[in-house]
Simulated scan of single mutants.
Amino acid sequence: MGPTSTREPKPLPDIAALAPHAHQVLKEAEIAGLPNRYRGKVRDNYDLPDGRRILVTTDRISAFDRPLAVIPFKGEVLTRIARFWFERTEAICPNHVLAYPDPNVVVGRRLDILPVEIVVRGYLAGTTSTSILTRYRQGAREVYGHRLPDGLRPNEALRQAIITPTTKAADGGHDEPLTEAMILDQSLLTADQWHTVSEAALALFAEGQRLAAERGLILADTKYEFGTDAEGRIVLADEIHTPDSSRYWFAASYAERFAAGEPPESFDKDFVRNWVVARCDPYRDPIPEIPAEVVLEAAAVYLRAFELITGETFVLPDPAEDPLDRVRRNLAGYLGMAL
């Protein structure tokens, strides 16, 4: 059954209202006194000697294996949306979170991340080589160990949500599709681990779809990352149901657009990426300077996503506040923890 909500999506925040905050970006989170820094594409992480990990979500946005820009409030939005979902799903699956000392920061348990990325899909959608829509268009009907019927249309709801697991490629590599049999045959996970992860992922996705529907949204697909803690317990890691890890559509316009063969209306999380692609070959050419208005429009997309998903209002901070100073101040209690 397709969605029935008729709730209209909120408009983008006023770009003019965001202009005074264009400088409030957290590009780097290098904090003297915190040990074992690892700089990822988006997060700066610090491993403490007591088994805790500090994850600082910056405002960096990257694509094509290259940094593109910094988007005001992006890191805060992702952290707060993930918090919204972690707090509402902890009865379904334990997660890594221990504390939120700052709007951009999570302190969590350090985990051994499982070598399988869990993607749950409720619709025939996607554009990458590993997406089920791409494979379906190529004639495949057996995908990730699931049999899909003939006659499905792009962006059509599946009879039930399915798990489409992939390998976790190293930086610069490409994820490869897996099936349950491959996961077990290659000893990527034990049978018990696969059972636990599968049940948790489907339950998390069902709850995500339910709450999204209450807000006039469709959670079409998402990815989860799991790890094991010191006791061997499987724990949800990283983030959950954020616009960067999930595909959201607006329910109000879905049926009409589907009937017309048009793609669903969504959060344009590829706003900056699409701007770059229209002007160069991002894999070969220098990246042109991205105009301030494009950066602010991207910020507005993230703020609208936050407000729609959580139901909360995003209050803009004092323009004089420096986000890195705030992060350093809120992490003062963790300084000096060296091995």
Rank of each mutant, 00 (worst) to 15 (best):
M1V: 15
G2S: 14
T6E: 13
P11D: 12
L12K: 10
I15P: 02
A19K: 05
P20A: 00
K27L: 02
P35C: 02
N36A: 06
G40E: 11
V42W: 05
R43S: 08
D44F: 00
L48V: 07
G51M: 09
G51P: 08
V56Y: 02
S62D: 10
A63D: 02
V70F: 09
P72G: 02
G75W: 13
R80Y: 04
I81N: 12
W85M: 05
W85H: 07
W85D: 01
F86C: 07
T89W: 04
T89K: 07
E90W: 02
I92Y: 01
P94M: 01
N95L: 00
Y100A: 03
P101Q: 07
D102V: 10
D102K: 04
V106F: 06
R110W: 04
R110H: 09
R110C: 00
L111G: 09
I113K: 09
G122A: 05
Y123H: 02
Y123E: 05
T128K: 07
T134R: 14
R137H: 13
R141S: 09
V143L: 15
H146A: 02
P149V: 09
N155R: 07
L158T: 06
I163Y: 07
D171A: 14
G173L: 06
P177S: 02
P177N: 01
T179Y: 11
T179R: 11
T179P: 06
M182K: 00
M182G: 00
L188A: 06
T190Q: 05
T190N: 03
A191L: 11
A191R: 10
D192R: 01
Q193K: 08
V197R: 00
A201I: 13
L204V: 12
R210W: 11
R215Q: 15
G216C: 15
G216T: 11
L217N: 05
K223Q: 04
F226S: 03
D229Q: 03
I234W: 11
I234D: 14
V235Q: 11
A237G: 06
E239T: 12
E239C: 13
E239D: 08
S245E: 11
Y248P: 10
Y248S: 08
A252Q: 10
S253F: 07
Y254L: 14
A255C: 07
P263H: 05
P264G: 09
S266Q: 15
D270G: 04
D270F: 03
P286S: 02
A300D: 01
Y302F: 15
R304Y: 07
I309W: 08
E312I: 08
T313A: 12
L316N: 02
P317D: 12
A320M: 04
P323N: 07
D325E: 14
D325V: 13
R326M: 11
R329E: 14
N330T: 11
L331I: 09
L331G: 07
A332L: 14
Y334E: 12
M337Y: 05
M337H: 06
